[in-house]
Design a protein around this nucleic acid. Sequence first.
DNA 1: GTCTATATACAGATAGAC
DNA 2: GTCTATCTGTATATAGAC
Lengths: 214, 214
Amino acid sequence: MTEDRHSQPEEMRAAREKILAAAARLFAERGYESTSLAEVARAAKVSKALIFWHFDNKQQLYLTALQKNLEPYHIDREELAGLEEPDQIVRLIDSFYQFVNDNVYSVRFFMTLMLRGELPLGESEASRGSDSLQRVNELYRAFRQSFAEIIAHGQQRGVFRRSLDPEREAALMLVTLVGVLAQQFMLGETFESSKGLIEHYKQTLFERLRCAEP
Amino acid sequence: MTEDRHSQPEEMRAAREKILAAAARLFAERGYESTSLAEVARAAKVSKALIFWHFDNKQQLYLTALQKNLEPYHIDREELAGLEEPDQIVRLIDSFYQFVNDNVYSVRFFMTLMLRGELPLGESEASRGSDSLQRVNELYRAFRQSFAEIIAHGQQRGVFRRSLDPEREAALMLVTLVGVLAQQFMLGETFESSKGLIEHYKQTLFERLRCAEP
DNA sequence: GTCTATATACAGATAGAC
DNA sequence: GTCTATCTGTATATAGAC
């Protein structure tokens, strides 16, 4: 999971970009309803009217900002090559939380959206909003599938128990990771305070996955 | 986890109660920002002005409605008495999801609030933060502690592995339960579709907790 | 206690100068 | 492209009759 945003100095960016950056941050922090365009304008240091020159309306700004938040991320499978399966799993778990930690606002934002089913514009077609949500779902599935593949490989190589169903295990893993995340956000805890729990989970996980000595 | 709301026929209730009921439902469904008092008034079949006679302002109505949503719930420890520890755990897990299923709106609502940090909380003191969030935290802790106690008891009776730390295990359990919940909400799944996952988790859990034959 | 009517503020959105 | 000024709708909240 890596990010390749090519960021530029604040002052040099075109107004449109400044608006998008401010909007992405504010919508993520405060949500759609309670973020006014006046606030976005102030944060971006432009006039309200300029927002309407660049975007048709509030919703379109919002959708564009969403997409901007999602585009740069992908799972980096290269970096796992050559590692033992257990290490691959550890690496994937860590990069999951690294990603989350680096993008608290966006992640919180998307969790809120999905939680409320707030895919704006109503969930009926035509709303390109669901594209963004679609992307999140893809990302989620990609993680799950990566875990499943690693487990399956590990089984073939005899390091993981063969009695397990990789898909089921991967699904449960993702659920747990998301649970830690949710708790972290919901109880207002920091990433640091969750670390103990995460380490404990890794240990638990390997006790489950690992073969008894062959 | 049981509910003991004493509901009355819609027409007979005092206006204040009708307002609270409508507010609780609408806030839970649509959130604070996007629920107008006009809608509440319409749903409660009273005038907007009457809301302000009964409540100081929108926020106070909101907080009062929240409390109404939470008060009736508690963990019913009686119902666990006499069961074997593993059965107690199964029962607690099931009643957790039963509760959630019976109160989708409220649960979703509170998760959203906590996620957005919309209420000034954080689990440690200081927050004059709403009583309601405090209540949610208490409930969460009560569940976790119940699990920890059951595990500890099971250890003493020799049915669970003694090498485990009950608090740690309970924390991880809650995280997983919340994770299933979060996924259910976020991916728009139904409770039914999560059942397979939950059953798989129970099985995984007991493989971890149970002693090898003594 | 409950209503109608109204005050006040601010949201999203437009017009038009530069 | 960016601004100031303004329109229009709707939100919270109040006044006052009954």
